[in-house]
Computed example of a mutant assay.
Amino acid sequence: MRTVTETEVVPEQVVATDAAFGLIAKLEAKHGPLMFHQSGGCCDGSSPMCYPRGEFLIGGQDVLMAKLAGTPFYMHQSQFEYWKHTQIILDVVKGRGGMFSLEGPEGVRFLTRSRVFSAGEIEALREAGRI
């Protein structure tokens, strides 16, 4: 079994664009600490939803994927199984978001993009116990 060395980097499973970090900061100034959840269901659940922290109940099937500037990003286990070989990129685009997500009144919405991890990145994630 191969082990990850100190010089190898375990890739982040969720990252964010500058626009996403800017919107997170703006929403935190209005609403306090935030959290994200992406369930993968239909309708609003297919987009990342932004809530005041603690106002969405995290269940036993939710996986903490990352903390973006201290803001937790959760994904339902079934979605995680589908996406675990990709890096999730949280971004912002113009348009209406989910009706319960905090960014709705801002005229923009959070959107997830992705890129497939390389074979080496997947191996590093496995060795780190992250997938």
Rank of each mutant, 00 (worst) to 15 (best):
K94V: 14
R130V: 13
L90N: 05
E123H: 09
C50V: 08
F56E: 10
C43F: 11
W83V: 11
P105H: 06
F100G: 07
P72W: 14
C50M: 06
G41M: 00
A124V: 04
P48N: 08
P105Q: 12
E28Q: 15
E103F: 01
C50S: 01
Q61V: 03
T7G: 05
L34D: 04
E106Y: 15
R115I: 02
Y82P: 06
G32T: 00
T7C: 12
H37K: 07
E123K: 11
P72I: 11
D91R: 05
L68T: 07
I88R: 05
F117Q: 01
E6H: 07
G97V: 02
P48V: 07
Y82N: 13
A16F: 02
R126Y: 13
T3G: 03
S47D: 06
E81S: 15
G95K: 03
E103V: 01
K30D: 07
S46M: 14
Q13C: 04
Q38Y: 05
G32Y: 00
D44Y: 10
G40W: 06
L64H: 04
F56D: 07
A119V: 14
L90Y: 02
Q38P: 02
K84W: 12
T112W: 06
F36D: 03
A119S: 14
A20D: 15
L125M: 15
E121K: 05
S39T: 07
F80I: 06
Y51R: 05
T5F: 11
R109A: 02
L111R: 07
A128N: 00
L102E: 04
C42I: 12
G70P: 07
R96I: 06
T112A: 08
Q13G: 03
G97R: 00
V108R: 15
F110E: 02
I58Q: 09
R53E: 15
V63S: 02
G60A: 07
F80D: 05
K26Q: 05
A25G: 09
S46N: 12
V9S: 06
V108G: 07
G70W: 13
C50A: 10
L125W: 09
L68G: 13
P11L: 10
P72H: 08
H31C: 02
V9G: 00
K94T: 12
L102V: 02
F100K: 11
R126G: 11
K26F: 00
G40L: 03
R109W: 11
D18I: 13
Y74F: 14
V9C: 05
D18F: 10
I131T: 14
T17A: 08
V10R: 00
G60C: 04
A69V: 09
G70E: 14
T3D: 08
V108L: 13
T86N: 15
K94M: 13
P48F: 10
L64M: 02
A16W: 04
